[in-house]
Design a protein around this nucleic acid. Structure first.
Lengths: 252, 252
DNA sequence: AGATTTAATTGACTGGGATCAAGAGATGCC
DNA sequence: GGCATCTCTTGATCCCAGTCAATTAAATCT
């Protein structure tokens, strides 16, 4: 079930230039020449199955990872089997940035469904970035973006009600799927109710009850892990989204 | 009260090499030569008074800031006067990393007491980092460190009780003061109860009650903003600190 | 296909912490 | 100095969401 990690017996050369994610992913905004140099550094391994880990908390840090297809959750295992889910990661998202600090991973990363993953040896990336200012800047940006997103999450956990949290989660997920060319109103949840609750600081039962209520109130229809959003404006209102948010929040 | 920002009419050259913080701050681990190059980039302005801002949310990003003396809080102002406090920053800590992402500050930074601040124009820092791999790495590390710290905060807000939150806050503050050569058991809180509560996702009244209770139970004595910790082990227990934490959490 | 385990839903109850309210100190302002 | 404002403390009450418990529905195993 929780098998050991990537055995890269087959390091396929990655072609970022022909990858549909390159507008969202690390190569975002780089020149074609620079992307080519980046490709030489990136490795791709066999697909991982649900339950496999990219890395474990405490493990030595050597690579960052990017989801190519599928989804991944990151979490900090706490003593006594408990855990705190830190995030759910969709295609194009970079994982492992927390590990640069101490050369150890401070969280674990587990695949939620069969997923293809790109691996980026950090030292080689760092060397490359020294010579490519635009890549260096892109890396700073991605680190900074993670900080901003976690800060938004702090706000959610510190100030918002259960209803606002789940609504905000669904709206945010919908937007992220949209950026990847998928439906914003009709999608599949790759994580369990338990994991959603853990992520949002809520009990499973609360999450379940809220799904039922959102359905009763015709904001969405839910069948097991399949969600159809029926009223996005309604959900946004529940999420307490203030439409005065400046446009710079929209990016990537 | 909320005056506009730093008017650097007097850009004193900063001498990081003779600054007592250089073991904690940006220069950490750099060679003396590299620190000298860094000094050429850093500006210092007149001291700021309580209530003045380093920057406001939404403002254009040009510089990072480091607290030299005093303390600063960062927060995201939300609609209707509410706010979420994101952090309290002590000498040697870098502020503004969230702004790299979008070239806008996504939070505001306000001085809690008269403070000296070093300003680091980011573009010049970035250029310098391209040529100094150790500085480049240090920057990645500091960004990563912020991510780890926010993740720890997510855990606190998502899973811990009010008692655990306040105890953890005090233990953490004590440790950070200790690293700066100050007393770990006897210190002054530069922030209000309200700000502590906001930061920890608690009501002011809850914070106040907990201070009283911790005092009744002889874990500490508190007089207004002055705190004396009487039983650090006791507080650590309240904080739910598992002493099995590996040593790599201890750094900086 | 049937047995076992795990995930999800729903109901009943409880409690931690928010909210409301009042009073006591501080601090700032003419 | 004295009035006003803001901060902090303490008490009383309430309610949101957690916990406990039971049922149903899926997924996994053999």
């Amino acid at each position: 079930m929780t098998q050991r990690k990537i055995i890269s017996f087959e390091n396929i050369r990655v072609a970022c230039r022909s990858c549909s994610l390159n507008a969202l992913c690390l190569p975002m905004g780089l020149s074609s020449d620079d992307i080519e140099k980046l490709e030489n550094v990136i490795k791709r391994s066999r697909p991982l199955q649900r339950g496999e880990h990219l890395f474990y908390s405490g493990e030595h840090f050597h690579s960052l990872f990017v989801v190519k297809t599928g989804s991944v959750k990151t979490y900090t295992p706490s003593t006594e089997g408990g855990e705190q889910v830190l995030g759910f990661h969709l295609p194009g998202e970079l994982i492992g940035l927390d590990a640069i600090n101490q050369n150890f991973h401070s969280c674990s990363a587990r695949v939620l469904e069969t997923s293809a993953i790109c691996e980026i040896p950090f030292q080689r990336l760092e060397e490359l970035a020294s010579n490519l200012p635009s890549l260096q800047h892109q890396l700073y940006r991605l680190l900074s973006k993670e900080i901003v997103e976690e800060a938004e999450m702090l706000m959610l956990l510190g100030k918002r009600s259960a209803e606002e949290r789940l609504a905000a989660f669904l709206v945010s997920l919908s937007q992220r799927l949209g950026k990847r060319g998928l439906s914003t109103t009709d999608f599949h949840l790759s994580m369990s109710r338990h994991e959603i609750g853990n992520y949002l600081g809520l009990a499973v039962e609360t999450v379940s009850r809220l799904f039922s209520r959102f359905q009763d109130e015709n904001f969405l229809s839910v069948d097991r892990k399949h969600v159809k959003i029926l009223s996005m404006p309604g959900l946004e209102t529940l999420a307490g989204i203030t439409p005065d948010q400046p446009s710079w929040r929209e990016s990537n």
